[in-house]
């Protein structure tokens, strides 16, 4: 698929501006900045409107005409009610546990296999490689019916296992890792092999330390995907205490009814963790998404 054209998994740093752009401020740059600001404001509207609503009292949030600045003042009531109800923290915890497990398992099994496909000349390697790449085509929605049946048969519905197990297979990530390992000079490993080091030791002590950027990129991509996945966890769990954040949020509208301020407070609280993570790791996330993104979708 798309991945085949992804020649170099590690792209140049996006932060570096073009040298010729360091020239003095031109009218074009001024106009460009104004236009970009307008688009950015447009893009912030849904956040801003959710924030304003969440800071209103329920009665004012549901009153016409709409107010942009609440007459009865801002209040944190909606956030307090949502957090006191306790579901949101619980769902966040479920998301954290399952996404972390999915990311860890995916990284380990994909890196091991990607390494073997890159370095070890074993019988059936080409065939395995073809099957792995070919399977990238399979759209996850095709799997939901048989997977649900399987989880039912294994008695795993309404457990973390049901959420985690089907999400650890990322053939595209195996391929991305393999491409990265291909670029590491072989001499390093051959010297160690001569000295009698085992494959595992070479992988852990030589290859992995050199692979931190790609491992981070894959981890970020897989984690965000797992954290936000809706369809499969929605099918795999019913028990309110086991829902992940996205699935739990889906139930609040029916549970709270027309509590608009609380709905928006919940949505903002749910958005908060990833936005904070993004603010801290902006460079890595952007790099990770642009390097693995083409392969992963």
């Amino acid at each position: 698929m798309a991945t085949i054209t992804l020649e170099n998994p590690v792209k140049p740093d996006l932060e570096e501006p073009r040298p010729e752009n360091k020239k003095k401020v031109s009218p074009a740059i001024v106009i460009g900045t104004v236009v970009a600001s307008l688009v950015a404001v447009l893009w912030l509207i849904p956040f801003a409107w959710a924030a304003i609503t969440s800071l209103k009292r329920e009665t004012e949030a549901a009153a016409t005409p709409i107010t942009f600045y609440p007459e009865s003042g801002f209040t944190l009531d909606a956030f307090v009610s949502v957090l006191r109800a306790g579901n949101l923290p619980m769902w966040t915890w479920n998301s954290l546990i399952t996404s972390a497990a999915i990311t860890a398992v995916t990284l380990v099994i994909s890196a091991l296999c990607g390494y073997a496909l890159s370095r070890i000349d074993f019988k059936g390697r080409r065939m395995l490689m073809t099957i792995v790449i070919g399977s990238i085509i399979i759209p996850p929605p095709v799997l939901i019916i048989p997977l649900f049946y399987q989880m039912l048969a294994l008695n795993l519905i309404d457990t973390y296992w049901a959420i985690i197990l089907p999400q650890v297979i990322h053939p595209a990530m195996v391929f991305v890792l393999k491409k990265f390992f291909d670029q590491i000079p072989r001499e390093l490993e051959e010297a160690a092999l001569m000295d009698g080091a085992g494959r595992i030791r070479i992988f852990v002590q030589i290859v992995l330390p050199l692979s931190r950027p790609i491992m981070a990129a894959v981890a970020i991509f897989v984690f965000i995907g797992a954290w936000n996945n809706f369809l499969w966890p929605f099918i795999a769990t019913n028990e309110s205490t086991l829902l992940t954040l996205p699935v739990g949020l889906q139930t609040i509208e029916s549970a709270y009814g027309i509590q608009y301020a609380q709905n928006m407070a919940s949505a903002l609280l749910a958005a908060f963790p990833l936005i904070v993570v993004f603010l801290f790791f902006q460079r890595q996330i952007i790099k990770g998404v642009s390097t693995t993104g083409l392969a992963g979708t």
Binding site: V39, A40, W43, P46, F47, W49, A50, I224, W227, N228, F230, L245, P246, V247, L249, Q250, E253, N263, M264, S266, A267, A270, A271, L274, I275, F278, I286, V289
Partner: peptide
């Protein structure tokens, strides 16, 4: 421009 992509579908839908 990129921040919305990090949101879960449910958050987007609530907004």
């Amino acid at each position: 421009f990129f921040a919305p992509f990090l949101l879960a579908s449910t958050v987007v839908s609530l907004f």
